[in-house]
Design a protein around this nucleic acid. Sequence first.
RNA 1: GGGUCGUUAACUCAGUCGGUAGAGUAUCUGCCUUUUAAGCAGAGAGUCGUGCGUUCGAGUCGCACACGACCCA
Length: 510
Amino acid sequence: MSKENTQVLKQRREKADLLADLGVKLYNNSFKPDNRVKELLPKGEHLAAETQDETNYTYSIAGRIMSMRKFGKAAFFHLTDNSGRIQVYIKKDLLGDEVFATFKKWDIGDIVGIEGKLFKTKMGELSVLADKLVMISKSLRPLPEKFHGLTDVETRYRQRYVDLIVTPESRQTFVKRVEIIRLIREFLSNRGFMEVETPMMHPVPGGATAKPFETHHNALDMKLYLRIAPELYLKRLLVGGFERVFEINRNFRNEGLSTRHNPEFTMLEFYQAYATYQDLMDLTEEMVSWLCDEVNGTMEIEYQEHTVNLAPPWKRMTMDEALVEVGGLNAEDLTDNKKVMALAKDKGIQLEEQAGPGKAKTELFELLVEEKLIDPTFITAYPTEVSPLARRNEDNPDVTDRFELFVTGRELANAFSELNDPVDQRQRFEKQIAEKGADEEIHSELDEDFVRALEYGMPSAAGEGIGIDRLVMLLTNAPSIRDVILFPHLKAEVKQQSKKKKKTNQPKHV
RNA sequence: GGGUCGUUAACUCAGUCGGUAGAGUAUCUGCCUUUUAAGCAGAGAGUCGUGCGUUCGAGUCGCACACGACCCA
């Protein structure tokens, strides 16, 4: 692209060459900073403006030059490292003519090492008066403009490294993401859960209804699928006697992209033997509200146009109750299967031929209720028809002991008391396969080994999945999933071909 | 898949009625030893996303395509 040969880039390369000719190492790995910027800040806090640090201690720091104000025989620049930002003051009389001459070729964006002493400027800003300068890595590309920063979202996603350099909010989001995941591990391991790693490549994709990515193992000459969910493997571990397990890792779904969907996304799934979905509601409430408080210092947060209160207890209602209370439907109509089907048709919902009232209710719920659930709400009693892996309710076999958690109108978690009857499980799998419908891309094959595992006996248990990306979006007020994934998937970057290149691409035998 | 908006210098953006490209930052040169969106003086930098069309003439109008954002399914 033309962008690769601009004047600015040429000048930077020329300057780098010039520095090299002057004997400056452009990529130097011998400078080891003893200090981080954050440590320096309290050391000079007490200083008055225009005074030197009386200890006269020499600090050494390293980082990237983010701004520069050069004078004839002096200069100020701001240097940032992973911990913070501090001003550096350069004086020719301290450094000598030669060093100062090479410094003149330094640019915003260069990564440098500094040794010097603390002082405060006239304006009272804590700064380092440099007595040693080291080039650590010469930058050959200019950074985005200092005032507006990088606003083009496409560039922010495609070149996340630039975004991270110049957008502190973006850095902060990813720091929070890491912290959230660390806290989840802490929370679960404090409750006796064991973190495990199950296969990401499955011979039979299961645990969810979604289109999988396919791949091929050459040596074994077999088809494999990137997992759409870890569920069936984690349950095998319950069979094996690990009573509390969890996994935080990627799932892959070969479907559309949106502000809420990335083809690979991070899921927390956990399973607890001898627990029910009721227990998991308590646990979820406790965990998510605690996470929010730890990360944001409050349980009441802003998410886009909403204010959300995550302080427990959270609302709990059945799907039928929600359809009546929030969706405005008539309670009596919901007890009549024919009326439910008619209602769905009425609202313009198109159902597949084999779909029953359970599917119709779920669709009505998505249409009429979901987006109205702003504060956290557990919806329980999901129809058995749409819950192939959940345990039936003992009093009403049409519904399952399952909940989904909604916050800001979005699904955040899905959990249920697990089905552990191998006969019922086999029948439900078979029914699911028979009813799979027209969608060829949804893989449907009975996972025989999973049923075999259940036949050995799986303890009663409850399990849950929480979408980590969506949780991070909520807790960092991010409008798009791409804002919480470091390298989100985008279409391939278009390389604009020059006319010359196009010609060489012509077949040679013409 | 459908609709709306966007794509102009490295970055952030102007560009009137169709008449041949502008600003700020960044860069380069000169001056400048407490600046902080430093300042002053000067300079260079653009296949206007791609292609086709209309026109004497297209950044601007039309069509197609690409990429992105948002909304809808």
